[in-house]
């Protein structure tokens, strides 16, 4: 990151510091702080928190895919144009109400369930839920069986079908393993918000709110308390971290 620009030899401290500097930079715009509901920037997974997203389909603009592009850039999963096999950590879904004909759009990604079916079925325990509710794949022990993809009700996971190169340092991914939205865990650990939420805010639509569902003072909790919202497939009783409003 930094040392490629710096002629002087970097020290270990420099590298660590550069991460911290980035965090403050991103925290500067008000939106970021607001999304955290005033909570302090985090250094690591905190069992006292449960990260979540609120997606307001009413504000999600037609034809806009800023969140998808931002995610692909941030995590380096842009494919080669084979739609059936390319990874898709987040996608825009267009809905048409069968009764009224009204259409709406919204992004769908890993819903970070409280009781995730992928974690239940994973034979090696590679699919796991972090203390703060983020559902991840430990790709170091993923054997590529794809049972989690069979089990996920949201098609939120992709299998890497081909060898990849030029990954992002903070988002390793490779052939033969399963992957999906990490809620930008590397950013959250540095006190930043997910790339999709940041990009959505930058478009001015502000259809995505990120925050701590356990903190009653966070913006996400206040909005959830005030306005109606729902989770996908409520029949499955998964208590997802991602909620939708105004579908």
């Amino acid at each position: 990151m930094t040392c490629t620009q710096k002629p002087a030899a970097p020290t270990r401290r420099d590298i660590l510091k550069s991460g911290a500097a980035m965090a403050t930079l991103q925290l500067a715009p008000g939106v970021t702080l607001m999304a955290f509901g005033g909570s302090e920037a985090q250094a690591a997974a905190d069992a006292g928190k449960r990260w979540g997203l609120l997606i307001d389909a009413g504000k999600c603009a037609e034809g806009c895919s800023a969140c998808v592009t931002a995610c692909a850039d941030e995590n380096g999963w842009k494919g080669k144009g084979d739609a059936e096999r390319d990874a898709q950590w987040i996608r825009k879904v267009t809905l048409k109400n069968k009764a009224t004909g009204r259409t709406s759009e919204l992004p769908v990604m890993c819903q970070h369930c409280e009781s995730p079916p992928c974690v239940d079925v994973c034979p090696t325990g590679a699919s796991f839920k972090r203390k703060d509710g983020i559902v991840l794949v430990d790709k170091h022990i993923c054997i590529g069986c794809r049972y989690c993809m069979m089990a996920c009700p949201f098609k939120a996971r992709s299998f890497v079908h081909e060898p990849v190169t030029n990954q992002k340092t903070h988002a390793p991914r490779g052939v033969g393993t399963v992957e999906g939205c990490t809620l930008c865990v590397h950013r959250i650990d540095a006190g930043r918000i997910p790339a999709c939420v940041e990009a959505c805010a930058a478009t001015g639509n502000g259809a995505m709110v990120f925050g701590d569902l356990r903190d009653p003072e966070s913006e996400i909790s206040r909005r959830l308390a005030e306005y109606p919202s729902l989770t996908l497939r409520p029949d499955l009783d998964l208590n997802q971290g991602v909620r939708y409003a105004e579908i």
Binding site: M1, P163, V164, P172, V175, T177
Partner: peptide
């Protein structure tokens, strides 16, 4: 290095590593 970069961040890796396959 199936997953992790083997060069510093920011450098555009040529694709030949992938063509090696596994």
């Amino acid at each position: 290095f199936d997953c992790h970069r083997s060069t510093p961040e920011g450098f555009e890796e040529p694709p030949h590593q992938a063509s090696l396959g596994r």
